[in-house]
Nucleic acid binder design. Structure first.
Lengths: 218, 218
DNA sequence: TTTAGAAAGGGGAAAAAGCCCCTTTATTTA
DNA sequence: TAAATAAAGGGGCTTTTTCCCCTTTCTAAA
């Protein structure tokens, strides 16, 4: 029987290498190769005629991150199943990744047996989430009471740009200049995001953005 | 020949399990067991008469983090060599860990061969740093030009408390109340930390604190 | 074709943040 | 022991932030 081929995309070489060993230890799976980021993956996919069945995709990578990579895969290699693999359990991240078409979302603290189950599930065209991920999703779906704005709704480009600049030492005036908008417009974005995220100050905004992975914290 | 025994402390089970495979693949080393956090490690060390030669210690763990764990080890099991293993390459973190007595600091994106070298180095009583870690350290040691305050100097308790509260939606007035100090004193801390970290605003302070792991970001 | 609702922006004011320069009281340290 | 330094705090000022209410323009839906 031909084994299912797996490609690992993760910049943590130690983890990638170790994970490769783990995958190869499963009878039904074997690792084709592993790469350090999205760009390398794309290069490999383009030059190799050996198409993998599953891609294990890390999200936080320096060069080309998981989201961008996922978009590329969906457009160019839609038949490859992608399993997101991250330490980040914030719902914004999870939802974003699943919206982009990932077939599952695993946290790196899962048990290897769960990992094995996830691989099998994905191969048989299913979807798999870590328990904590599923819980998070449930909370989001029929979540809460008064958060009709809070989550799913994604930010507009301009709001996101503002948010990123707000997570900076720039004053609003400087941000306005940078974005070629009136300070008053910026003030509007600010108020709208404050309500959206239920925060009371720019500090709160920054904390929210970082905690939810909307801007790079490190 | 008896193999050198290794204990893995990491909450990412998938990583831990995979790493165990990697370590066991080296002839000279074998994994004794792996645990999810510092508390579990201590329990194991206390109840088992089988003392490991090396502990591979992750830093970011939910229950008892690497720093606390390192302190305990130095006090109670000073003869065990500890290799810190983290994705965090900020100098404050590295220096703190090495000050606490870690025999090396590895970033999780290192190559497995480097990992092997590090294990051997530590066993022969040496010290090993990832290349990027060494670079960071060098920059710090005879670093820069005018940063006589910047790094090594650790914050006083009260300053750290202020810093943590500053990474919050509280106003300075509220922080002052919380700390039972005059708002003017708080203002003094603020100014001093601004200079210390070379930031221009409270936002900058928050970003610095998070990036350097001085407050929990997530 | 109205009409509702975004998006961009204005006025104005109160609160908070940021900045210097200063005083007092301990605690070092030379 | 005298001088230096650190910790706590005050005065007073400017800039930023935060808030609320309002206008115009354009687009999309009823």
């Amino acid at each position: 029987m031909k084994k299912h081929s797996v490609v690992i995309v993760d910049d943590h070489l130690l983890f990638a290498q170790s994970l490769q060993g783990l995958v190869n230890a499963f009878d039904e799976f074997e690792v084709l190769y592993h790469v350090k980021n999205g760009s390398e993956l794309i290069k490999k996919l383009l030059e190799s005629e050996n198409v993998p069945d599953i891609i294990l995709l890390d999200i936080n990578m320096p060069v080309m991150n998981g989201f961008e990579t996922m978009e590329w895969i969906k457009e160019n290699r839609p038949r490859i199943q992608v399993l997101a693999l991250s330490m980040d359990d914030h719902e914004e991240t999870i939802i974003r990744m699943l919206r982009l078409g990932a077939k599952g979302y695993l946290l790196k603290d899962i048990h290897p047996e769960i990992f094995y189950k996830a691989l099998n599930e994905v191969i048989s065209n299913g979807i798999y989430y870590s328990e904590r991920v599923a819980t998070t999703l449930l909370n989001t779906l029929h979540g809460g009471n008064d958060n009709e704005v809070k989550n799913g709704k994604k930010l507009k480009d301009t709001e996101l740009t503002f948010l990123k600049l707000a997570c900076t030492e720039m004053t609003y005036k400087e941000i306005a200049q940078e974005m070629c908008l009136s300070p008053k417009t910026i003030d509007g974005y600010r108020e709208s995001l404050f309500k959206h995220f239920k925060v009371k100050s720019r500090i709160g905004l920054v904390l929210y953005a970082i905690r939810n992975n909307m801007v790079a914290s490190k």
